[in-house]
Design a protein around this nucleic acid. Structure first.
Lengths: 150, 150
DNA sequence: TACCATTGAATTGTATGCAACGAAATGCGA
DNA sequence: TCGCATTTCGTTGCATACAATTCAATGGTA
């Protein structure tokens, strides 16, 4: 019934679309909570990795977040201006920039503890569904990220 | 072991992150295929809904794609300039803009048929996994999209 | 019918994302 | 050690995204 050669072009037959839409909607959900920290979503996930590692260079942050220097350089400068991170040339390798958490950035971590709690209340999936979704996304991410050919 | 109060802030404990990263990586995967059609990803999904409905106003497109006029207005003007759609004031409601597919846009649909095929080869999940992922994403999207309070 | 809240687009301002390019530093082989 | 490919950031240009605002058209309602 209703089969035609264009079915594969229907929005509802694309896996990419719910992925794209979900990502945007979730990021939008974060906004009111992140506003209280004066962070955007991208700044927030940058702080997440920095809170863990304390010090990373731009390349390492980029690999962790799937972002390049074109996005990160201006973003890190903004975080520096807000006082949450400091940036300095590495002494071992002058090409590299060390980005590290400041005491103010460390203080922010305390305030950020409420964010996952508040967001958790927004995601109405069961723990099993979250687990399944999480695993499939990481699987896709891994398949996706490997070099295209070979 | 290693439990601490900041565990909830670890990047790997966030569902949002693989969602965000996957979405970007998939969109990036589309690029070489969409370049052949002279479309960006957002322009592509806009064409997808328009190919189906033939004519929609900006509000309807926005509801289908989770985009607002701030994104769509300039994007639709670009698609118009490329000759794939036409834009005109609705006669029934002068506030509304009717966006419709042109013959060139219809021709483009033929070329676009190869895109899902080429992309399908990039996504190395089983059909069952794709199905599960798809359903969970739509479920999340629905939960997410409902009005926040009440 | 005059008033006014609502609606649909467009505009403005800010913040990404990313490809492409540039420049300086590094490293490696002849 | 010289030359050159590679690496790491930064910059530029283009295209989203979205909140907030504006403006014109519309739709009740007194």
């Amino acid at each position: 019934m209703g089969e035609n050669k264009y079915d594969c072009l229907r929005l509802e037959n694309q896996l990419c679309f719910p992925l794209y839409a979900c990502s945007k909607e979730i990021v939008r959900k974060y906004k009111p909570f992140l506003d209280k920290l004066d962070l955007t979503y991208t700044q927030y996930i940058t702080m997440l990795v920095l809170w863990e590692k304390k010090e990373m260079n731009v390349k390492e942050i980029g690999e962790a977040l799937f972002l390049d220097s074109g996005t990160l350089t201006p973003l890190l400068k903004k975080l520096e201006k807000k006082g949450y991170v400091s940036r300095s040339r590495s002494k071992e390798d002058e090409r590299s920039i060390n980005v590290s958490i400041t005491p103010e950035g460390e203080t922010l971590r305390e305030k950020a503890l409420s964010v996952p709690v508040e967001m958790g209340e927004c995601v109405k999936l069961t723990p099993e569904e979250v687990e399944t979704l999480y695993n499939l996304l990481y699987k896709l991410l891994k398949k996706c990220n490997c070099k295209d050919e070979k």
